[in-house]
Amino acid sequence: MVRALGEADWEEFRGIRLQALTESPEAFAAKLSEEQGFDEDFWKLRLRRSTRFVAESTEQLLGLVCLGRAHDDDGEVPGVGEIFGLWVAPDARGSGVATRLIKAGAERAREDGLSHVTFWVGTDNGKAVAFASGMGFRPTDFRRPMRLPDGTELGDTEIAMVLPLGDDRAAPTRL
């Protein structure tokens, strides 16, 4: 099952986010040591800024993905959402959890009236590029360096992959 989290679920969100950073630190532009120190207000703020979805079984949380609005150097990109922070627990990989999470994010974006969603993927991560392509995302000419929240560049590059949510199949002109 996939469900959206609300502010009251901040501890659940904190738990799965820290689990993701512990298990796959290289997959995120964040540091476990910093996020462990964030207080309740910070986690609630994150839940207000974007929609966080979890996949769960009756026993455990299996994965996480986030949906926010796309931004570029000029601010929010009209009509475009951004899917980010995808993580699936190792024992649930290959079971369709990531697909269900991405579909939930795309469906919410469609319900919110967005025309496209972006998904930034490391250019050297062939599995992620193939996964996104299989979900209907298409590569764009947009690239950016991977950075930590403090702005430190990591040396890798990401590509924006875009999924049209309606009749407008053209990629957005800014990201």
Rank of each mutant, 00 (worst) to 15 (best):
G126H: 10
G105C: 05
V129W: 00
E59R: 08
R48H: 07
L148Y: 12
I83V: 15
L62Y: 08
A20V: 03
T51F: 15
G15F: 00
A55D: 12
T152N: 03
E59L: 08
D39C: 14
K31N: 04
E59S: 12
S33A: 08
A170R: 15
L18I: 06
I83H: 08
L175V: 11
D73T: 11
R49H: 11
M1K: 13
P90A: 13
D41A: 15
A109E: 00
L114A: 02
R46S: 12
R69N: 05
R144M: 12
R138E: 09
A29S: 12
F119G: 04
A4H: 07
E153T: 12
D39T: 08
Q19S: 06
A98F: 07
E107K: 02
D74F: 12
D124R: 15
R174A: 13
G166C: 11
R169C: 11
S33Q: 05
V77T: 09
F28C: 03
V129S: 11
F13M: 06
A104L: 07
F142H: 12
L47S: 08
V54K: 01
K103C: 09
E82M: 12
G94P: 06
E12K: 03
P139F: 02
G105L: 02
V88M: 08
A109D: 01
R143L: 15
Q36R: 15
T51P: 00
P78K: 09
V129H: 01
L21F: 05
V117H: 03
L47K: 14
H116G: 04
L45P: 00
A128W: 00
L165S: 04
L47P: 11
G166M: 09
L18R: 02
E7C: 06
Q19E: 15
V77M: 08
V65Q: 04
A8P: 05
A20G: 06
E26A: 14
Q19N: 04
D72Q: 10
D167L: 13
M135G: 06
G151Q: 13
N125Q: 12
A30C: 05
G68S: 05
V65Y: 10
G134N: 10
T152Y: 01
R138F: 00
G151T: 09
H116C: 06
T157L: 13
H116R: 05
V54L: 14
L64N: 04
